[in-house]
Amino acid sequence: MLSEKLKDYNIILASGSPRRHQFFKELDINFKVDVRPIEEVFPNHLKAEEITNYLAALKAEPFKASLQEKDILITSDTIVWHNNEQLGKPKDAADAIKMLTKLSDSWHQVATSVCFTSKNKQITESHITKVKFKALSLEEITYYVENYKPLDKAGAYGIQEWIGLIAIEEIIGSYPNVVGLPTHLVYKTLLTIANA
C-alpha cells in the first residue's frame, strides 16, 4: 500500500545496518542504500533523543547538495541512555562487557531518531523505548560478548539476539525501535509525505 503511494519517489536509506535494511524490506518499501561517512560528534550538553536527533540530521549533510526533486533521504541514529550517560557502540570486547555490566539489573532507554530529508524540507522524528534487564552474571555477559560480538550495536547488545531472550524482563514502547528503527514512525511519516 505505502509502496504504491511512494512509487514516484526515490527512497534513499543512508544506513549500513542490515537490521534497518530488513525493516524496509518488511515494510514493502522500495529503497536504495547510499552511505556517506561523517564524524559522529555531538555537543556535550545534549541528552538522550537530543543526541540522536542531532546525529540523524548530521548524517544527512553530505547528501544535501545532490538531492533531486523526488528524493527522500532517510538517516537514523540509535543510542542507549542509562543513568544520564550515553552508551554508543563499544570500542572492544572489554568495553562491551563494561556496558552490559552497567545495564544489568536496571532500566535503560533506547532512543532512535529518524531524519527525512528532501530537496526543500527536513523532518526528524524520535522514539524512546524503556527496557529493563535482569541481573546478569559476568559469565552470561562474557558468553554473549564472545559469541555474538556486539561491537556494532549501541549499548553492546541486540535485543533480537540471545541476550534479549534471557535478560529482558520488561519493555515499554516500540520493540523495533530497540532493534534500531521505530518502524511505526517511518511508515506514518512516509505516508504523510506521500499524501502531501
Rank of each mutant, 00 (worst) to 15 (best):
L151M: 07
W162L: 11
P176C: 10
I171N: 03
G164M: 10
I168V: 15
Y144Q: 09
V178R: 09
I159N: 09
L165R: 14
V178S: 11
S174C: 09
I159K: 05
G173L: 08
L151T: 02
H184A: 15
L151D: 00
A167K: 11
G158Q: 00
P182H: 02
A154V: 03
K149R: 14
A156N: 04
N147G: 09
D152P: 00
G173F: 08
E170N: 14
I168G: 01
G164T: 10
G155M: 01
L165N: 15
Y157R: 07
I166N: 02
Y157H: 06
N147T: 13
A167Q: 11
V179W: 10
P150M: 05
K153A: 04
I172K: 14
V178I: 13
I163Y: 02
E169G: 12
Y175C: 09
V145K: 12
V186L: 11
Y187G: 05
D152C: 04
P182L: 05
I168W: 05
L151Q: 01
E169K: 14
G164A: 12
Q160N: 10
K153Y: 00
V179N: 10
G164V: 11
Y157G: 06
E170Q: 15
A154W: 04
A156H: 04
P182G: 03
V179L: 12
Y157K: 06
E170D: 15
V179A: 06
E146Q: 15
E169R: 12
K188E: 15
L165E: 15
V178E: 08
P176R: 05
T183Y: 01
S174W: 06
P150K: 02
G180A: 00
G158Y: 00
L151P: 01
W162N: 06
Y175T: 04
G173M: 07
G173T: 05
I171T: 12
I168T: 07
L165S: 14
K149V: 14
T183C: 12
K153L: 08
K153T: 01
D152F: 06
G173W: 00
N177L: 04
E146I: 10
G155V: 00
I163N: 07
G164H: 09
I171A: 10
N147I: 08
E169H: 06
E169A: 09
L185H: 09
V179F: 10
E146L: 13
V179D: 10
V186F: 06
P182R: 03
A167G: 12
L165G: 15
Q160Y: 10
G164D: 07
I163A: 03
I166F: 05
G155D: 00
I172N: 13
Y144A: 04
S174V: 02
I163K: 03
G155E: 01
K153F: 03
W162A: 11
H184M: 13
K153D: 00
D152Q: 11
V178A: 10
V145W: 07
L165D: 14
D152V: 02
L185S: 08
G180M: 01
I159H: 03
K149T: 14
I159Q: 04
I163H: 01
I172S: 11
L181P: 09
I168C: 11
T183V: 15
G173C: 02
D152W: 09
Q160K: 00
V145C: 12
L181M: 14
P176L: 04
I172Q: 14
I166A: 04
D152S: 09
L185T: 06
I166L: 13
L151S: 02
N147M: 11
I163V: 07
V186T: 07
W162Y: 13
Q160D: 05
E146P: 11
V178G: 06
